[in-house]
Every structure is written in C-alpha cells, then in structure tokens.
Amino acid sequence: MRKLLISIPVLFTFIMMIYSCQSADQVTQDLYYVSGRDYYIKYCQNCHGAKGEGLGALAPPLTDTVFLKENRNKLACFIKNGMSEPITIHGKKYEEKMPDFQTLGNIDIAKIVVYITNSFGNKQGMYPLEQANEDLKKCK
C-alpha cells in the first residue's frame, strides 16, 4: 500500500515532465509560426494570397499538402533562391518564375516554412533552424 502511495505521485510527476516537455516544443513551434506569419504577410502574401489560395495560373496555391510533404526538404531552397522550373500543384502546371528572397536569414526561412506547412489546411509540425541550415546547404 505504501509502495502504491509513493509510486502514484512519482508516476504522475514523470507524466507531467513528459507532458511539459512536449508543450515546450509546442511553444517553440508557436513562436516560429507567429513570426512566420509576419514574414508571410510581408513577402509571400501578395502572390500566394491571405488564405494561400494563389493567384490564377500566375502563382500556385499553398494548399497542396502532398507536394509540401514530398518537397519538405526543398521548401527552404525554393524561398531563398526562387524557382524558375515549372511545377505541378493539384495537378495543374505553374510555369511563372518565383522571385528569390536572398535577404532572408535561415531562421526567417524556417519560420516561414513552419507557418506555411501548418496553415491553409496543412499540419506538418515543426521545422527547426538546424534543419533549415542543413537543407539550405544542399540547394541546387
């Protein structure tokens, strides 16, 4: 009985520890998300729209979850260097050039990726700075 009385608070503490760890991650992600939104409004929204809806056949929407997932490691490069190759989004071809954003820091790009991949119906979680640094090294 005494063992049980002790083990319950211990177990409870452990669970709380794990729980609070997760929420700290969530807090970081939220921080990325919120400032990513500011960058999105400033740099991306004029073409891609407030709801990520795109603009006609000029700018693709950001709602193609499959594309975003498959190209997760290339998104940072797309933002930094722009795009001139045609891409297919939701089965539709987009061939307009996307401008580069060389002035953005890696951390800013990571924040934008977090915002985009967790908005507009996407829910793909955290994209940390370390990952962005690594992915940006491999840009073509």
Binding site: Q45, N46, C47, G49, L55, G56, L58, A59, K97, P99
Partner: peptide, 15 residues
C-alpha cells in the same frame, strides 16, 4: 507583369 510587390495584390483585388 514581372512585378513581385504590389501588382499581384492590386490585380487580385481588381479581379
């Protein structure tokens, strides 16, 4: 047409 700043927003709204 190659304007990347305000034109897309203007034309989105005009549309």
């Amino acid at each position: 047409t190659s304007c990347t700043t305000i034109c897309p927003t203007m034309h989105r709204n005009m549309k």
